[in-house]
Amino acid sequence: SPPYTLALATKMAEVAERAGLDLLHVHYALPHAISGILAREMSDGNGVRLKVVTTLHGTDITIVGQDRSYLPITRWGIEQSDAVTAVSRYLTEMTFRELGVRRKVETIPNFVDPKRYTPDGASSYARTLVREGEAAIVHVSNFRPVKRIGDVLKVFDRIRRKIPARLLLIGDGPQRSLAERLARDLGFEDRATFLGNVVAIETVLPVGKLLLLPSDVESFGLAALEAMACGVPVIGTSAGGLPEVVEDGA
């Protein structure tokens, strides 16, 4: 089968021609901006001038940080896009500094639908997760090292020694088994509920009393915005784009 980037470019061009599209909005420079630009060039040969708008979320900088050989093609994908946005001022500045991009990048923050994310939107199932009198402490992540899941559990261990509390962990990833083991080692396995990936997260967040987000870095921190929209206060690190979302002391 053809490489994903080429197969995607072909499909983009086909869909654009069939639907009469004027614009492709792609997320991430690698690989989607590259595919979009290839689709634009293919469509241009058919007399159609597509525009490609690329939104950066931070993974591109992470990839280049891990392997500098990706720098030229990442930068090319960004600079050849017709317009580029980034989800935080922090990420915009990092794009200039780390990738050497010289074109305009506009900051457009992530957002949530306030009709979906509300303080009174908890489902009946979510309410069964917390016993009466317990404070629900919530963490949402992909369980990767950058999320510092070990610190989440250690903070909760201190909380539950002071007040009745339950830890709700939403998401999945490579350090989930480590987190489950640490909960057992710290003696609160019965107070930690691992929910895995939750499709309608807005139906669970409102039962929380606090969201913990001690990440090493966040390009934006969408989980924090979702929690606050549901009326849940957030404690997070002053790292990356998170201070643009969570106002200290507010």
Rank of each mutant, 00 (worst) to 15 (best):
S1H: 15
Y4H: 07
T5G: 05
T5P: 05
A7Q: 15
A7M: 09
L8T: 10
L8S: 10
A13I: 09
V15L: 15
E17M: 15
R18T: 04
A19N: 12
L21G: 03
L21S: 10
A29L: 00
L30W: 06
A33G: 08
D44A: 14
G45R: 14
N46L: 14
G47N: 09
V48I: 15
L50N: 07
L50H: 05
K51V: 05
V53K: 01
T54L: 02
L56A: 08
H57G: 07
G58P: 11
V64R: 12
D67N: 15
D67R: 15
R68S: 14
Y70H: 11
Y70N: 11
L71M: 10
L71E: 13
L71P: 12
P72V: 09
P72I: 06
T74P: 08
R75L: 04
R75V: 03
W76V: 03
G77V: 06
G77T: 07
G77H: 09
D82F: 01
A83D: 10
A86L: 06
R89C: 05
R97M: 04
R97V: 14
R97K: 12
R97S: 15
G100M: 12
V101D: 00
K104G: 04
E106Q: 07
I108S: 12
I108M: 07
D113R: 05
K115R: 13
Y117G: 01
S123G: 03
S123Q: 06
S123I: 06
T128G: 01
L129M: 08
R131I: 02
G133P: 04
A135G: 03
I137N: 06
I137L: 01
I137E: 03
V140P: 06
S141D: 00
F143I: 00
P145H: 06
G150R: 03
G150M: 04
K154Q: 13
R158C: 03
I159E: 02
I159L: 01
I163M: 15
L167V: 01
D172H: 09
P174F: 03
Q175K: 11
Q175I: 05
L178A: 15
L182A: 01
A183I: 03
R184C: 00
D185P: 02
R191L: 03
R191D: 08
L195V: 13
N197F: 13
E202K: 00
P206E: 05
K209I: 00
L213Y: 02
L213N: 12
S215F: 04
G221E: 02
A224H: 02
A224P: 12
C230V: 05
V232C: 13
P233A: 07
P233K: 11
S238Q: 07
A239T: 09
E247L: 14
G249F: 02
A250N: 13
